[in-house]
Amino acid sequence: MPDTPTPHDDAESPASSPSRADLDLVIITGVSGGGRSTVARALENVGYYVVDNLPQALMVTMAELAFESSAEVTRRTAMVLDVRSHAFSVDLTGAVKELRARGFRPRVVFLDAQDDVLIRRFESVRRAHPLQGSGRLLDGIVAERELLTDARDEADVVIDTSHLNVNQLRSRVEELFAVASARSLRVTVLSFGFKYGLPQDADFVLDARFLPNPFWVPELRDHTGREAEVSEFVLGQPGANNFVDDYADLIRRATPGFEREGKRYVTVAIGCTGGKHRSVAIAEALALRLRDAGLSAYAHHRDLGRE
């Protein structure tokens, strides 16, 4: 007679072995000049083994090597892709699908920026765009955007770096990846100023300009929404706390649906005129409400300090 499995046998079954889904795998891509090198360094700071300028054709091979490695350092692996191939879009889409078919659960991060910002960045380093050929910088940027359309649409998180300096981008990446489980939803509550433009990476956009502006209160003008006197002024206005509570409840109720659909990052943008007082105070309060509700949430202030 065949042996009957014992409870001990079950405990040692292959189901208890590490799986490809356990590998914390991040894929970084985006427009040239969008900040991939800065993101690579930030991921190294929080413990990722980073492979920079990896050709798309080697993505699956690299993931398998990281999975098969016995080294603890490769348990968190990030691949920064080289986008200089005209076959990039097909390569990336197909490679990500193959990774998922093999059991991996990669997170794709797309870095974007406005065209005028990209032009300034290339001109400041006197470097040609990799796809411009004999044309202008803008020609290369437009060609690359067309190439990257599918990659951007399928990304788990899009980070607009237009208004971020190197330190701000590094900080945002470290906040996203330092402590969160790869399987949990992360909520970024982003304050911004309408006069500097809408965030391109927002899932929700809220408007805090219905509240009185502390800018017109002389003793508050030079302070920010992160300081107690401004926060108390903003949140003490009629309707302010209801605004925060209602949106916290909306996001909390939507969270199970996001998780069922595999969405791992949500950006809630809150704007006021300059991004210094009202939106900052509301963003801090909303992030706190979401954390109190058991969500992984943090506040990020895009335009604070720009005035």
Rank of each mutant, 00 (worst) to 15 (best):
M1F: 00
P2T: 12
P2F: 10
D3Y: 13
T4L: 15
P5I: 06
H8A: 13
P14F: 15
R20Q: 08
L25D: 07
G33L: 12
R36F: 09
R41G: 06
E44P: 12
E44M: 02
Y49A: 09
D52K: 08
V60A: 14
S69K: 00
A71T: 09
V73A: 04
T77M: 05
V80M: 04
V80I: 05
F88A: 03
V96C: 00
K97A: 09
K97P: 01
L99V: 04
L99E: 07
A101M: 08
R105Y: 01
P106Y: 06
V108L: 04
V108Y: 00
V109F: 11
D112T: 06
L118I: 09
P130L: 12
L137E: 12
L138N: 04
D139H: 13
I141T: 03
V142M: 15
R145M: 05
R145N: 07
T149E: 06
A151T: 03
R152T: 01
D156T: 06
T161K: 07
N165D: 09
R170Q: 10
V173E: 11
V173L: 11
F177D: 01
F177Y: 11
V179E: 13
V179S: 15
A182E: 10
V187L: 15
L190Q: 09
F194S: 07
L198A: 14
Q200K: 12
Q200S: 06
D201G: 02
D201Y: 01
L206S: 05
L206D: 04
D207G: 06
L211A: 10
P212H: 08
P218T: 00
D222Q: 05
A228S: 07
V230F: 05
S231H: 13
E232P: 11
F233L: 04
L235S: 02
Q237W: 09
P238R: 15
N242K: 10
D246I: 02
Y247Q: 11
D249Q: 11
L250P: 04
A254N: 06
G257E: 05
E261L: 12
T267P: 10
G275P: 00
H277W: 03
R278F: 08
R278V: 03
S279R: 00
E284W: 05
E284G: 02
E284I: 04
G294S: 14
L295M: 15
Y298R: 13
